[in-house]
Design a protein around this nucleic acid. Sequence first.
RNA 1: GGCCCCGUGGUGUAACGGUUAGCACGCGAGGUUUUCAACCUCGUAGCGCGGGUUCGACUCCCGCCGGGGCUACCA
Length: 459
Amino acid sequence: MAAQSTHPRVRFAPSPTGVLHIGGARTALYNWLFAKHEGGELVLRIEDTDRERSTPENVEQILDALRWLELDWDEGPISQAERAEAHEKRLRDLVESGRAYYDTATADDVRAYKEAHDNAGYRGQPAEEGADGAAIRLRVPDEGATVVDDAIRGEVRFENRVLDDFVIARGDGSVLYNFAVAVDDLEMDITDVIRGDDHLSNTPKQLLTIEALGGEPPRYAHLPLLHGPDGKKLSKRHGAASVQELREAGYLPAAIRNYIALLGWGTDDDTTLMSTEELVRRFEIKDVGTSSAIFDEQKLRWINGRFIREMSLDDYTAAVAEFTGREPDEKLRAACAIAQEKAQTLAEVWPLIGFLFTDEPELDEKAWKKVMKDGSDELLGASLEALREVETFDVEPIEEALSGVVENTGAKPGKVFQPIRVAITGTSISPGIFESLAALGRERSIERVERALARLKAS
RNA sequence: GGCCCCGUGGUGUAACGGUUAGCACGCGAGGUUUUCAACCUCGUAGCGCGGGUUCGACUCCCGCCGGGGCUACCA
């Protein structure tokens, strides 16, 4: 096993498909939390031995998503291209030392071999060097076992006799992932690798490669995979499945960090809401669970709402400004002030305050029908009179005036307030009615109520 | 098929040989209330199945079932 280091070098390697999935985000977060908690450094390696997938644009999108999530790294991104020389050299070393050999066997050949040998691992016959299109395979020992000492699952044992001599380089000389990553981990002095469970079965290959190279392997930790609500692997079909989509849906980076940290890891004292600082302080890789989890957006919504309500007005205004592409000016700040308690996500804010930023709010006919009943015209008329007489158009005087209407008419508060709400916002859902009126201002409030009244009388 | 991992309410988790199986989201009811939220109270629902081991098993062992991963000259 790797030597204990007081200064861990942790590497993580998101797939550069252009989309940072929730699972990938969680892996990145755990790597980040681990590195911070242990006081080590985080190395970002791009898994781009597949050149078709990892276009520069895709890579940049992944980096963007990570930056937005506020997960920074100390070194990298390291790309395949800049490591090519090292890979070739190690490859040559292995062939020269006899630990790897040229082989022309096809996938069918390998299958046939296994069938003939009771599912034993494939063992090839070395071909002439440079034989046409020959790939290079690593020689796997026949005896013993390759054991992964996993920080989360404990020892996982793979019998060498069932492991194939696997291909480490293609016929054209280019190297394969399991070889490349093993060489990089070794040469870059990586001490800890935290990644998805789907790599557990690949780990013996990497272990064997490092062993053949005469190096010490890093410590591994394999995270259980994430699934969608149907228990299948999480994908776009399950709604928001990527960090980019979560961002568009109006979630806060800190809330996402809190939520996905809890997907597979929990505290011993039932704490749910945690600042990132607290996450860093409490995160222990050994406490990560072993069973796969299902991404549940409802709980994320709840956590996000809690984070929103705890933000300062300035931070909140800035977040809303960024999300809506507006200036975080006084006007927006005032609007945010009356809506902060109401929204679970940033996306829900604008529908609540948009009426303040338009001359004529869009009217929700359904809401109008539901609210404007018999007698609404009289109550609205009375409210209009009361509003006209308010001296200072602030929350308290407005409340006083409208409460007077409720008292004088003996109507239920809702009968008085809802028509006003629809009149000034166009909908039946809005921030507090007094706050909304005050924010809209005298002129516009009165004008809108007049307009509604006219429409009411006309019908 | 072979190899490997996993299995506590609908969801995320805690307890890990002895508790009325805890917490949170959700859901339901009530309260508060100018709408919607928020907030408060109460409630709902769980150890996949079958064998062992043990005085005692959610916890340990075995089998089964279920889910997932790998099994590429993909990553």
